[in-house]
């Protein structure tokens, strides 16, 4: 028998250890059968189905999808990216909440965030640009759906939910706009709120409800904060759940054209 060099023996030990760990009880308890992270995963049609079926993503994806639907040029991944941006915004948003008080101190907190806190500036930038990007991506997603005629039967109602989701996205972005409490924030929101005041019949009430008064004050700030971090995300998640569920129930991706 050939004597192995030290380096080879170390390599062998490492491989064996890795295998026994991957095949061990701990990993088997974490990953369900068919997971590619389990030992002995081989690429087979059966395992390809298992990857989805034994995964939490089964709530989102079916085992099989129409062939034309996976072409990048068909959806441009816009719906998925909208959802992903929402997740990114949730994560960065929760992080920002640790350093923010929706009072007169809001502006100071943002200044401190940008100067004193590690990665504060980066995370704030990600949250802000990500929000702009999400408005854009959701809008593009809607345009894609329209041009494909994907709102037609049986998907009519999902279009309605989609429009509600876009309006909620705009509201989320708009309420977040005020939170830095700088000149840009307060005057943009004042202009936006005044536009809401032009709504026929209920204009004055809408404006008063939005501002928690006649103009943008710290009371408005608190109101927008609660709407932004709790109320609107709560509502939008419910609509998103219905939206995704309906996509599958209405027969998956639309088309082909």
């Amino acid at each position: 028998m050939q004597k192995l060099s030290l380096r080879d023996r170390i390599k062998e030990a490492r491989v064996t250890a890795g295998d026994s760990f991957r095949g061990g009880k701990l990993m088997s308890s974490i990953f369900r059968p068919g997971s590619p992270f389990r030992k002995g995963y081989v690429d087979s049609p059966r395992n390809r189905s298992y990857v989805v079926m034994n995964n939490v993503l089964y709530h989102l994806h079916p085992v099989k999808v129409k062939r034309h639907g996976v072409r990048l040029s068909y959806t441009l991944c816009l719906g998925g990216l909208s959802f992903f941006l929402f997740i990114v915004l949730t994560i960065t948003g929760i992080w920002l909440m640790f350093y923010f008080r929706p009072t007169e101190l809001a502006y100071v907190d943002i200044q401190a965030l940008q100067t004193d806190i590690a990665f504060g500036s980066l995370v704030r930038n990600m949250h802000r640009w990500g929000a702009h990007l999400m408005v854009l991506v959701v809008f593009l997603h809607m345009s894609r759906v329209f041009y494909h005629g994907a709102y037609k039967a049986p998907r009519e109602f999902n279009w309605v939910i989609g429009v509600i989701l876009l309006l909620l996205t705009l509201l989320l972005s708009f309420t977040g706009y005020l939170l830095p409490w700088d000149q840009l924030a307060i005057w943009a929101v004042t202009v936006g709120g005044n536009m809401a005041g032009y709504t026929p019949v209920i204009g004055a009430q809408a404006k008063f409800g939005l501002f928690a008064g006649l103009e943008a004050t710290t009371a408005t700030l608190l109101r927008f904060y609660v709407l932004h971090v709790l109320f609107l995300p709560f509502i939008i998640v419910i609509f998103m759940a219905v939206h995704f569920w309906r996509v599958r129930k209405d027969g998956g991706i639309s088309g082909p054209l």
Binding site: Y107, I110, Q111, Q114, S121, L122, R124, N125, M126, R128, W129, S173, F174, Y177, P180, W181, D182, Q183, L184, A185, I186, W187, A188, T190, V191, G192, M195, E215, A216, T217
Partner: peptide, 25 residues
């Protein structure tokens, strides 16, 4: 994008000083 572009932060909000022009988002 976030590393390159800094999100804007102007002076503290002041209801008495209206910027010209005041633009919505």
């Amino acid at each position: 994008l976030s590393a390159i572009l800094q999100a804007p932060l102007l002076e503290e909000a002041n209801p008495n000083v209206t910027p010209n022009p005041a633009k919505a988002p």
